[in-house]
Amino acid sequence: MQNVVVLIELTHTGHVPASARGLLAVATRLGTPVAVTVSEIPLEASTVAALGELGAVTIHAAHGPSAHSILVAHLVDALDAAVTAHAPAAVLAASSVDGREAAGRLAVRTGAGVLVDVVDAHSIDGKITTTHSVFGGNYTVHAAVPGALPIITLRSGAIDEQAPAVTPEVLNIELAAPPGTVATIDSYSDAPENQARPELRGAATVVSGGRGLGSAENFVLVEQLADALGAAVGASRAAVDAGFISQTAQVGQTGVSVSPQLYVALGISGAIQHRAGMQTAKTIVAINQDEDAPIFEIADLGIVGDVFTVVPQAIELLNARR
C-alpha cells in the first residue's frame, strides 16, 4: 500500500486537533497514513494512543526546543523530511491557517502540486482525485495533479469518518534549526474552549444569528436555542461587524462554510455572501420579521415573525420534550 503523509498540527499544549480524525480517515482511504507531528518533547504515550485510535499507522514525530516558538517553518521541514523518507502518494494537511501555509511552502520546496479546500478525495486506479465545493457550493469540481505529488488541504468538518484504530510505530526525529530567516511566535493566547457546545465546523446542527438580534445581550437567545438543539453557534457578518459575537463564529463567504443537517437562521436577511457559507445545509429553517428577506427563498421552513417571541416559545417546547 502506498504511503500518505498527513500533517497533524498538535497544539502548543500537546493536544490532537479536531481535524486529525477526518485527515487520517481520508489518508487511510488513499493508502497507509504516516502522521507528521512537531512538538517540544518526544510524544507522550497518550498522544501516540490518541493518534493510533484515529488510524495513524506510523508517526513521524519531530521534536525540539523551538517547536512552538518558530512559526510554521518546523512543520515544513518535518513534512519535507517525511516526504523524502516515506515517498508518499499524497500529502494531506488541514485547510487551517498553519496547515495551508505549511502545504504551500512544501509544494514550492518539493515541486509538488496543490489541491486546496478539498471536501473529499479518492484514489481510482492509483490516481488521486479531489472534490471541491466552489462558489458557496454552487459547483462541485473534481481535480487532480497528474504529473506531480498532490499536496491536499482538507476543509475542516467536511469528512465525518473515522479510520480503524491501529497501534502506531513511532519514529522519533530531532528538529534542526530551519534554514533562512524565520518568523517567531512570541506568545500564545488560546481561545477559551467551550466543551459543552459542538464546534461550528462539522456540526450536525447550527443555529446562527444576524443583525435582527439587535445587541450582544440579545444574542444570548441564539446560544439558548443552540443549546436546546445541541447545536453549534454561528453568525452573519452583520452580527459580527456589530460586535454581537466574535469573528470565529462568522458563517459565509469570508467566514466558515458549513453543511449541517439543520441550519437555523435567526434574524438573518440572507445576503448572497451569507448564503455562500450555508446553502449546502440539508435543511434550512429561517425566522425573520421581514417577509421579503432573501433567506426565505432557500428556507425549507420559513417563519415570518418576531425572533424574540417565537424562539423563547420554541426553546420551552424543546426543553419540555426532554
Partner: peptide, 12 residues
Amino acid sequence: RLNDAGTQRVSA
C-alpha cells in the same frame, strides 16, 4: 495572528 486555537503574537 488568528488561528483555530486562538491568537499568537508573532514577529519577523
